[in-house]
């Protein structure tokens, strides 16, 4: 059952069209990624979902509610973590969570949430004294303190070091296990690949692709490459005769076999039949990065 339905969303700021035509649905319990280059319209889209902006056209329905008309009711059930939103310097971790908990009818236990997010030792630390990762975790905690059914997390790990980023991913997976539907806005492909069940790639204010990360990759750039150094000379046709193989190239003593489907199995089988040992064998598969470049013509920012 879809918990979020966005249909033909359109939003402009003056002459600038931020969102041209965006449609997607998010199912209960999934982690839905919204991907795209900077300025693609990702944040505007989720701001319309959160009821912070009024669409100029199209419809948004969240948990069966209109975010603009039923904003007060929706905000009890939707947690939002915004890009670049900070807290007062002197506000302490526990105070922030207790304050935000007081806004909701059925809040989570702030003390437990603090522990769950690994901020147990920072209970009385002022916001200013927290590290980037700790601030980010507190921000996620604030989005979850109302026990929401849906959490919208915008650029969750931007500005975090790789370890803090991985810790945050673990956190998101634990949140999903509690049954919370998550909308994750990101421009990190690795993050989307690791966490998301489905992703919508937005570019120029439009959805240019919507699929699982694996589905996107195999649909957009289905080719794989196998590199190895054969133990004895081998003719190209040994490989090109295989239906999976599309081309063979050589560089130095190295062979590069490109193809689709179950390429690795086909190549290793033919090598075994010919009693050739493949040294330094590497399988290169396309990643969401490649798919992203293919779809948007841009390198993902990193």
């Amino acid at each position: 059952m879809p918990v979020i339905e966005v249909t033909n969303l359109h939003k402009r700021y003056g002459d600038l069209v931020a969102v041209r035509d965006v449609s997607f649905t998010v199912e209960a319990g999934e982690i839905f990624g919204v991907l795209g280059p900077n300025g693609a319209g990702k944040t505007t889209t989720v701001e319309c979902v959160a009821g912070l902006r009024t669409p100029d056209g199209g419809g948004v329905s969240v948990l069966g509610l209109d975010p603009r008309r039923d904003g007060a009711r929706l905000r009890q059930r939707l947690g939002v973590q915004l890009q670049e939103s900070q807290l007062p310097d002197r506000l302490r971790v526990a105070e922030a969570l207790e304050l935000y908990a007081s806004f909701y009818r059925n809040p989570a236990d702030p003390a437990r949430l603090i522990d769950d997010l690994g901020l147990g030792g920072k209970r009385n630390t002022p916001y200013k004294k927290l590290s980037g990762g700790q601030k980010q975790r507190l921000s996620v905690a604030l989005a979850l303190v109302g026990n929401p059914e849906i959490a919208v997390l915008d650029e969750l790990t931007t500005g975090l070091d790789p370890q803090a980023r991985r810790d945050t991913w673990g956190l998101i997976e634990r949140v999903r296990e509690r049954g919370v539907t998550i909308v994750l806005v990101t421009h990190f492909m690795e993050e989307a690949e690791r966490l998301c069940d489905r992703v919508a790639v937005i570019d120029g204010g439009r959805v240019v692709a919507l699929d699982s990360p694996g589905g996107l990759v195999s649909r957009v750039v289905p080719e794989q490459r196998i590199r190895f150094r054969p133990s004895s000379p081998v003719e190209d046709h040994v490989f090109t005769d295989l239906p999976e193989v599309s081309s063979v190239t050589r560089s130095g003593g190295q062979l590069v076999v490109t193809g689709t489907g179950d390429l690795l199995h086909a190549v290793t089988a033919v090598l075994a039949r010919n009693q050739i040992v493949a040294a330094d064998l590497r399988l290169e598969q396309s990643t969401l990065d490649d798919a992203f470049v293919e779809l948007t013509g841009q390198r993902p920012a990193d």
Binding site: L82, P88, G146
Partner: peptide
């Protein structure tokens, strides 16, 4: 300061 740092915006996403 509250506006610049997004404190007001953040509050707008809550029931408060």
């Amino acid at each position: 300061t509250y506006r610049e740092r997004g404190v007001l915006r953040r509050l707008a996403t809550t029931p408060a």
